[in-house]
Amino acid sequence: MKILVCIKQVPDLESRFKPNASNTWFDEADLAYRMNEYDEYAVEQAVQLREECGDSSDLTVLSIGPDRVVEAIKKALAMGCDRAVHIQDQAVSSRDPWQIASIISAYAREHKFDLIFTGMQSQDRGSAQVGAMLAELLGVSCATTVVGFSCKDNVVTAKRELEGGVKGVMRMKTPALVTCQLGLNIPRYPTLPNIMKAKKKEIIALPVADLLKEESLAKTTSFHPPAKKGGGLLVEGDIADQVDKVLALLKEKTAVLR
């Protein structure tokens, strides 16, 4: 079984974001990067499937971006992917989901993967488009927002998370793509021996120009903080004062303190 997992490197979402010079995305200076959280679940599920299938299977991890994304790729290799493809793109943050899906499909079409895993969305853009678009471009079945997964005899059973705690169970034949939701599994921490082993694994670098043949369909024209709705009271200062202030507020504004 040939498996592909697509990952994105995103900034730590606890960071403070400032607009870049063109006011279309954040300024990358001073940000720490990590693997998109949803993609960690995708990598874990891909590695579990790789382990179930044994040596007849093969797992590639793919990421698009500048050199910094190699850090996320190395983590995926240490988690158990066999090899990596780094599509080198300095302008990745200016691409729309259509272009990202087109780039990946140009690579994936040639390699005929049986199963593709992606996160259901990225933590920074949150569009939830690339996975389903990629499946559509490749003409393969696709289940999104998956919280349960199994694959036997080339049939995938996927449990989709719906609203209100309800789940929807569906089946599809491979080739197929699933987009992974938080809670699908418990992503492993790379162990030191596996981190060392990963250093010897192949990382294939491809220039994005070889794969990108599409213009963007949408552009970001502004990046800014949300308008403050006001109303909320900020309580700062030392802990004892904060506690006194909050207790006074709760007594005044709520009926729960007796």
């Binding site: 900034p11 979402l13 954040f26 933590q123 920074d124 853009r125 949150g126 024209t221 903080p225 949300p226």
Partner: peptide, 16 residues
């Protein structure tokens, strides 16, 4: 649209 975990906003302009 929202982005960065709800901390920021973008204006997106479609060209199709």
């Amino acid at each position: 649209v929202g982005c960065c975990n709800g901390k920021m906003r973008r204006i997106v302009k479609p060209s199709t």
